[in-house]
Design a protein around this nucleic acid. Structure first.
Length: 574
DNA sequence: GCCGTTTTCGGCCCGACTGTTTTCAGTCG
């Protein structure tokens, strides 16, 4: 939380410095620092205690002092001073898409416009026309921007954006003359939320392709339509889609460029300059004669820069470039590596399908085994199982396995970790199960120490194999529990308990950042779907993407083992 | 404001689209 607050302050400082027309590199430093703060695994106050704050790239002496000031006093005096120079509403106006610092200031200087409401009134009543450089189109754009800002509340979950992006790609593929086509941007990097959908395409004749795009039925409004770039807003979600047409010889360079991240790209360009090249979205060029020496594929681009190709999921300037220079990037886990989905629910609790239906569907997806892990009795709302019903379920699974020739079904339970840290099921019965997932579904608001102690207690029992959705966060709905992650991860290491990577698109829990932290402590993971319905098993890819973003290899994830070795691991060979 | 196998000073990524311009500034990604 504290990191988010600091990131927000740094971004606001950058906004104000833009209004002041300050040094652009200073502004960039604040923006970069905001990004860095958002991606940090540890809270700033903790880093401060251990003196590690100034080791973080992008945080120098000055900014670490500002962070320290915020942690100590809850304020950053530089920010407080800067705020006095502008009315707060100016930052709101700056947040309207299409309205930048120059226009914001112009509006304020001309008519004292210092709120979105005021701006809207002036625009609607034609009173902006007197301002130099503002005519009908600009006024219309300002009004569109205001509407857009109101309709778009920030970013969209990957689980919403990715299927939409793939559907639009499918439509564009249908256009005659469409060559290569790929999603770029943060969707391709599989960030948990994305701001917009970027599609990159080669085409013999861009005109008809752009026509087809702007006429798609999913589109509510076209923002721009050029020969190489068009943008539109989709109906319902109000997501923005950008389509860019590039030449074949530039496709790889463009893909790299528009995939980002920005920080990764800047490092690439710096590398290029050092080698006497120039890198842009058209290719890598030799600065002596301006000749293109790479660009058709990403592989070519990375090659001429002397780098190993970097998987999009880890292009975040978090050390991947340094390793790529040495050709020492880790081999990341892939979708096909997962051999069993080991967290799912049936009609016994809050699922909507039978054990057999879940098992058969999993079999059709190519899995070798699954685990049935229904809720325990405290979760009344989910019809959690008491000991008697759990025993019946175990018998049914035994019977299924006797008749089934293919997929194996493991007996399990997602047992609640009660508010005091006890497990919500008899120890004797849990001991008979193949796999026990310990999860928290109540008492979310306990203070950090209590929450951490509760989870550690559960691990101490020796009955729990996996901590389910360890942070409890739900994207856009619920923050993570207050947990001391270092203590939790250290205990998990000690008691040899794995961490779940829950693939449910709104959970993605653990998060990529925490996965990376847990991995650095040597923890093991299981990537699961928590399916309540066979169709939800398709979400596994989201969890695998999170694992890749957390730099996990196949060996870090236990359910990449075959059935025999997976069971052996569960029985204690860890 | 950050950063350093050329540097503790002087660099810091680059181009498309729009609108109002008549050669360009502003905004965005």
């Amino acid at each position: 939380m504290v990191n988010d607050e600091i990131a927000h302050i740094f971004n606001s400082i950058a906004d104000i410095l833009e209004l002041k027309n300050d040094n652009q590199f200073r502004i960039r430093a604040y923006r970069k620092a905001a990004l860095v703060m958002n991606d940090l695994a540890d809270d700033a106050d903790k880093l401060l205690e251990t003196g590690k704050l100034s080791n973080i790239p992008g945080i120098g002496k000055d900014l670490s002092a500002k962070i320290e000031e915020y942690v100590r006093t809850g304020k950053v005096s530089t920010f407080e001073e800067l705020k006095k120079e502008f009315r707060p509403g100016l930052l709101d106006i700056l947040s309207i898409p299409g309205v930048g610092p120059k226009t914001s200031l112009l509006l304020y200087d001309s008519y004292g416009i210092d709120s979105i409401e005021k701006l809207e009134t002036y625009a609607n009543t034609g009173r902006l026309k007197g301002i130099k450089g503002i005519k009908d189109k600009t006024i219309a754009n300002i009004l569109k921007g205001i509407a857009l800002r109101r309709s778009i509340q920030g970013r969209f979950p990957l689980g919403t954006a990715l299927p939409v992006g793939e559907a639009i790609m499918g439509e564009l593929r249908g256009n005659r003359g469409t060559g290569s086509i790929e999603l770029a941007g943060s969707i391709r990097r599989r960030r948990e939320t994305v701001g917009d959908i970027d599609i990159l395409v080669t085409a013999d004749d861009p005109g008809p392709l752009m026509d087809r795009f702007v006429q798609l039925k999913e589109i509510e409004r076209v923002l721009s339509r050029g020969p190489t770039r068009s943008s539109a807003i989709l109906k319902n979600t109000h997501m923005q889609v950008d389509v860019r047409v590039v030449e074949k010889d530039s496709f790889g360079a463009a893909l790299a460029y528009f995939t980002g991240s920005k920080a990764h790209n800047i490092k690439l360009r710096e590398l290029a300059i050092r080698k006497g090249y120039k890198l842009n979205e058209y290719g890598v060029f030799d600065t002596r004669n301006d000749k293109r020496i790479a660009g058709a594929t990403e592989q070519d681009v990375y090659d001429v820069l002397g780098l190993q190709w970097v998987p999009p999921e880890i292009r975040e300037d978090q050390g991947e470039i340094e390793l790529a220079i040495e050709h020492r990037l880790p081999e990341l886990i892939a979708d096909g590596d997962i051999l069993g989905d080991v967290h799912m629910h049936t009609v016994y609790s809050d699922g909507d399908s039978t054990i057999g239906q879940m098992a058969r569907h999993a079999g059709s997806l190519g899995y070798r085994y699954i685990a049935i892990t229904d809720h325990s009795q405290s979760l009344g709302i989910a019809r959690g199982l008491d000991p008697g019903r759990l025993r019946s379920q175990m018998e049914e699974i035994d019977a299924f396995n006797e008749t089934s020739m293919g997929i194996r079904v493991l007996k399990g339970m997602e047992v609640d970790i009660l508010s005091d840290g006890r497990l919500d099921m008899d120890a004797g019965l849990l001991d008979k199960l193949d796999i026990v997932i310990g999860s928290i579904h109540m008492g979310f608001k306990q203070p950090r120490e209590q929450m951490t102690g509760r989870m550690v207690n559960a691990m101490k029992t020796g009955l729990v194999d996996l901590i389910g959705h360890p942070s409890g966060r739900i994207i856009g709905e619920r923050d993570a529990y207050e947990v001391d992650w270092d203590t939790l991860f250290d205990a998990a290491k000690k008691y040899r308990v794995a961490m779940e990577i829950n693939s449910f698109p709104l959970r993605l829990d653990l998060t990529d950042v925490m996965i990376k932290k847990a991995r650095s402590k040597g923890l093991k993971f299981m990537t699961t779907t928590d399916s309540h319905d066979p169709k939800q098993m398709r979400y596994m890819g989201y969890g695998v993407s999170a694992a890749r973003r957390g730099w996990l290899g196949k060996h870090d994830v236990v359910n990449t083992k075959d059935h025999k070795d997976f069971v052996r691991w569960l029985k204690g060979d860890r």
